[in-house]
Amino acid sequence: MRVAVTGTPGTGKTTATKRVETDLDIVHLNEVIRTEGLHDGTDDDRGSLLADFDAIDEYLAGKTDLLVESHLAHHFDAERVVVLRCDPETLEERLRERGESSASARENAESEALDVILSEAVTAHGENAVYEIETTHQTPEETARAIEAVIAGDREPSAGTVDYTDYL
């Protein structure tokens, strides 16, 4: 089985997946993109790497029993897609505390309010494969347990249960 854990930057993906107890191999995709050179250079405006999706597909090909974590994870094959969600105001604060520019933090908060990653995940994988987890007031351990419930099949799909449109 392959499970993707995705969400807007700052929702808690990396922190939570480091605490997930599972037999699946955990792939922190952003780290792999850097270390394996699976990119096409840098986006100078954002200061981030431009992921090479074909190279990532090749890297993941034939690998099973994976939990793939990244804001890009929903772009790749998965039986279940966990979308972590966070209140846009809290998300914006977290990103600024991590050193993101105000413009970048605001752009990500607006993307969260507009359900950008959720919409992409549902389009790519179908509503019945997507599980939203609201992380704003959860500890990383609580989020990890919720991800474990998705992996175990103990949680129902829940796309469209979080609404942040009032932020806009």
Rank of each mutant, 00 (worst) to 15 (best):
M1S: 13
V3T: 13
V5N: 01
T6A: 01
T8W: 00
T8L: 02
T8E: 01
T11P: 05
G12M: 04
K13H: 01
K13E: 02
K13Q: 06
A16P: 04
T17V: 14
T17E: 10
K18C: 08
R19T: 06
R19A: 12
T22V: 10
D23L: 08
D25Y: 06
I26N: 03
I26F: 04
V27W: 01
H28D: 09
E31T: 13
E31R: 14
I33P: 03
I33H: 03
T35W: 09
T35P: 04
E36M: 11
E36P: 07
G37Q: 10
L38G: 00
H39S: 08
D43A: 11
L50W: 05
A51Y: 09
F53C: 04
D54R: 12
I56L: 15
D57G: 13
L60I: 12
L60A: 08
G62S: 06
G62N: 08
T64S: 13
T64K: 12
T64G: 14
L67G: 03
E69S: 08
S70L: 04
L72S: 07
A73F: 00
H75D: 15
D77T: 15
D77N: 13
A78L: 03
E79C: 06
E79N: 14
V81L: 03
V81F: 00
V82W: 00
V83Q: 00
V83F: 03
R85I: 02
C86Y: 00
D87Y: 03
D87C: 10
D87Q: 14
P88H: 01
P88V: 02
P88N: 06
E92S: 12
E93W: 10
R98A: 12
R98H: 10
R98S: 14
G99F: 07
E100M: 14
E100Y: 15
S102F: 11
A103G: 07
A103P: 01
A105T: 07
E107D: 15
E110K: 05
E110I: 13
E110D: 10
S111A: 15
A113C: 07
D115V: 04
V116I: 15
V116Q: 05
V116R: 04
I117H: 00
I117D: 00
L118S: 02
S119C: 07
S119A: 14
T123H: 12
A124R: 13
A124S: 14
H125K: 06
H125I: 04
E127W: 10
N128S: 14
Y131G: 05
E132W: 08
I133R: 00
I133P: 01
E134P: 13
T135A: 10
T136D: 02
E141P: 04
E141R: 11
E142V: 11
T143C: 05
A144W: 00
A144N: 02
A146R: 04
A146V: 06
I147E: 00
I147A: 02
E148D: 11
E148M: 12
E148C: 10
A149S: 15
G153Y: 07
D154P: 06
T165S: 15
L168K: 11
L168H: 13
